[in-house]
Write a protein that binds this DNA or RNA. Sequence first.
DNA 1: CTGAAAGCGCTTACAG
DNA 2: CTGAAAGCGCTTACAG
Lengths: 357, 357
Amino acid sequence: MGAKAVRTVPRDVTAAPAKLRDVARHAGVSMGTVSHVLNHPDKVSAQTRERVRASISELGFVRDANASSLAAGRSRSIGLVVIDLANSMFVDVALGAQNTARAARRNVLLAGSQDDFELQGENVDFFDEARVAGLLLAPLKDSAAQIRKVRSRGCPVVLINYDAGSADVCSVIVDNEQAGYLAGRHLIEQGCRRIMFIGGDDDSLQPVAHRRDGVKRAVREHGSSVRFEEVRMPDLTERSGAEVGRRVAARGPDTRPDGVIGVTDTLAAGFVEEMVAQDISVPHEIAVMGCDHNTAAISTPVTLTTIAMHGQRLGEEGMTLLLDEIANEGDRHLHQRIVVEPELVLRGSTARMPHVA
Amino acid sequence: MGAKAVRTVPRDVTAAPAKLRDVARHAGVSMGTVSHVLNHPDKVSAQTRERVRASISELGFVRDANASSLAAGRSRSIGLVVIDLANSMFVDVALGAQNTARAARRNVLLAGSQDDFELQGENVDFFDEARVAGLLLAPLKDSAAQIRKVRSRGCPVVLINYDAGSADVCSVIVDNEQAGYLAGRHLIEQGCRRIMFIGGDDDSLQPVAHRRDGVKRAVREHGSSVRFEEVRMPDLTERSGAEVGRRVAARGPDTRPDGVIGVTDTLAAGFVEEMVAQDISVPHEIAVMGCDHNTAAISTPVTLTTIAMHGQRLGEEGMTLLLDEIANEGDRHLHQRIVVEPELVLRGSTARMPHVA
DNA sequence: CTGAAAGCGCTTACAG
DNA sequence: CTGAAAGCGCTTACAG
């Protein structure tokens, strides 16, 4: 080729990264214009916009989000704090929230609390410091203090999977009472007459209390022929489920329950494993089910019947509510309480009736 | 009580949030001193420190992390981008990374890429804009361009579950070849002689290629009596696994494989479900196993033998390497490549030999 | 150990 | 549509 030996020299990697002022200089415009191209491209003429964009990519400019948020007074990101990422329900929540946020060109910052209220507090504080545009919170238990603090800084909060019981905050919840009811009714329909509910000993854990109430309603509805029994464990782990399993096995076959509901799948999974270890047949001697559709509860030797919570739906609805509240800062926003219905998921661990197999 | 009616008036909630300058004024010190209390408490006398802390909590001051990061030139947070949070292996990675970071008083920002290379790019860009102190990246495939960009801004990167093959970056990887080998050897030991490997059609997915190589090594090692067959699917979903299942079922029993390895648990789970639907016994007619210990693969009617990847270990080691690189900015840091060995997890889907039951 | 001051890299009225 | 300038809330040498 006859072209002169002029070639694009690769930018020196050790050179200082380009800043907005460098872009402005390079494009021959003011910093304000570059900022507009970044934040309100429609307010800039097409020609200027393209010139600025060319400079941006040529210089490899990446805007400093910290400076941007500081100057704008608030970050564009949204914080999401969930109870525990090891519970797949909350991964679903994150997915749903993420997708909805992305459609609105917003980023979501994700944090899991590992079932630890103190860690939850740290996560909320962190997002508070980051001055997120909004906070989606799936709390372990009553978190009024944490919420008030964040809100006083002008950050809207939407609750997920927790009913604050007050009208001054949006929430998206699962009907946990109904979840318990579905579980109880299903076992009764499978012929169980001695129902055991494995819950926790901390009544402030709202979903646990509600699910128990639902199971009781199903039992009551059936009349006096069904017995109800509740065991309260200090935590909701697989280990606790196995512990209950040992106690149940130690009883005579006639006094054992014939249907067991773990308030979480994890708990139910631990129970099932212990049954297998003790040579007690699931579902024939004892039908077992979980109650939160945690796909992480894999290790059961039989597949676990459970109640699906539609986590993704929760995340989507919550994010939609939050985005609305952010857009309408206080005034035109009406706090809502959205209830998502749970659903029975049939699997092997309760399949006593031939037609269910 | 004879005390005067002086009581602590609750701070007006509508008042402007306290800033560092307010704290300084309230405590009667300069802003620099407040900043020191926050960032280098040991450089301040105990008395001053406590006075400042009292003012901080009395005023409900929460430092603005954006301003802080801007002034300091870099955020204190660390970014973690994983391939997919729906794969529990990566939740484990996040857990491990989180715990290690927390011990070092660092926050980690978590993002999942949903198996989407474009989303991965967005996640990396986001952390780049946030000027994170370091980036832990579990990439889908070669991401040299993304990495170079971030690094040019002075942000150290450590790779997880991906072998960059170059000595200029730290990485923590699973020995995927060994994982494949363990899987292959296990099936052969279980008596399988016609092994099928279900993989993907994208050779740039490193773990897939390595696991296949490992399976082949096991087959080769056993001599010519074992047949090897590979199926390449466009994606690694449950649906693809079921599709392969249908094809296998359509063959005559004599030409079918008697041992199947899904390169992911998800793939294997889909295959198993299809076997059950087709009334082909797992493990007796066909033994099946997965290869990444994804606890999210719950829906299998028999529990799935798989290879554990020790995700938490990966996260911990990766974060440790990254923290070291951050602390020793370039000079005293030596790039390392840590290999974590995988491990066979026996379950029902390959239990053909009585002693394994 | 403490204080005064410059500066981090943007955004946003404001005026043209 | 574009530009000049003030300011966002901190941190960090620097001097005392």
